[in-house]
């Protein structure tokens, strides 16, 4: 069984991708070479930008099965419309019009059960791309990328997670920001969740909602405070009141910001910076052994 770690954050831009890519480097170097990084932030997959020498190994189209209505068989009974909970089907009997909106369809298959006239056929609809990369160390990067204009983030994430299942002994997932359904899908089944926050009022507000979610899902987690030194102490007070572990504090530094902006994995060249990630790994291992 793989050990699954997910990096999440309520607020965007707290440094989730920075933490995920640096942690991947440290896991590979210091813990287990058989570690896979999985980018679940399919709307904005940015992990790849941190691996300048990445080589594309595999590329698969991610599709969703969306039914089409064969109007020569359809009797316009509207039973499929009644079965569709997502209002994706339009049938207008007097003008013999029937169609399904792919952007509203969840591919649940209910309409197929509804139709007694064999008028529905499922066709593959492209919603994204799944790519595997060699990055020069470790097991590499598996990336999900939502097709622009598609609203089907969650099925793309589900597909990528299925591919990653037991693909390495340690799997590190980079989740999207926020707390909506796509975050739930990314975080689901994690053995440990790292929440990245920044010590600002926005960071704190969004962290609280994310903590609520992870607690509801009953998953073990700890918090990394990134950009420490900016903002105020309110995040620290909150974490202390709630009895939440601080895995590590990573100070804000303008030089770091510049390096990250170029897509650099700083742990590879800066020993002082790398120590933060070694500490995070040590804390997670302590948890794992408990």
């Amino acid at each position: 069984m793989s050990f699954k770690i997910t990096v999440a954050s309520g607020k965007g831009g707290t440094g989730k991708t920075t933490v995920a890519t640096n942690l991947y480097w440290s896991l590979v170097k210091n813990f287990d070479n058989d570690t896979l990084l999985v980018d679940c932030d399919v709307e904005e997959p940015d992990d790849l930008l941190f691996f300048k020498n990445a080589i594309l190994r595999s590329e698969v189209k991610v599709t969703q099965a969306v039914p089409e209505i064969n109007t020569s068989k359809c009797t316009y009974c509207r039973k499929c419309v009644e079965y569709c909970e997502y209002n994706a089907i339009t049938v207008i009997p007097p003008v013999q019009y029937a169609s399904i909106a792919p952007d509203l369809c969840h591919s649940c298959g209910a309409c197929l059960y509804a139709c007694q006239d064999d008028a529905l056929i499922e066709k593959d609809h492209e919603i994204g791309l799944m790519s595997g990369y060699d990055v020069g160390f470790g097991k590499g990067l598996l990336e999900g990328r939502l097709k622009i204009g598609s609203a089907a983030q969650t099925p793309v994430i589900r597909r990528v997670k299925k591919e990653a299942l037991d693909a390495a002994s340690v799997i590190l997932f980079d989740a999207p920001p926020g707390t909506s359904c796509s975050v739930v899908t990314s975080v689901l089944d994690a053995d440990f969740v790292i929440m990245v926050t920044e010590p600002t009022p926005f960071g704190l507000h969004d962290l609280k909602i994310a903590v609520e979610l992870i607690r509801e899902m009953d998953l073990p987690f700890g918090v990394v405070i990134n950009k420490a030194g900016l903002g105020d102490r309110a995040v620290y007070d909150y974490l202390e009141d709630e009895g939440i572990d601080i895995l590590e504090e990573i100070p804000f530094n303008e030089e770091y910001a510049r390096k990250f902006s170029e897509g650099m994995i700083l742990s590879r060249i800066d020993k002082n910076y790398a120590i933060h990630y070694q500490k995070i790994i040590r804390k997670i291992l302590e948890f794992k052994q408990q």
Partner: peptide, 20 residues
């Protein structure tokens, strides 16, 4: 927009979305 590789990459994606 934000001056980072990620910011640039994500900007390209949002521009493509809104171009329609």
């Amino acid at each position: 927009a934000e001056s980072s590789e990620s910011g640039y990459h994500d900007l390209l994606r949002i521009i493509e979305l809104i171009s329609k």
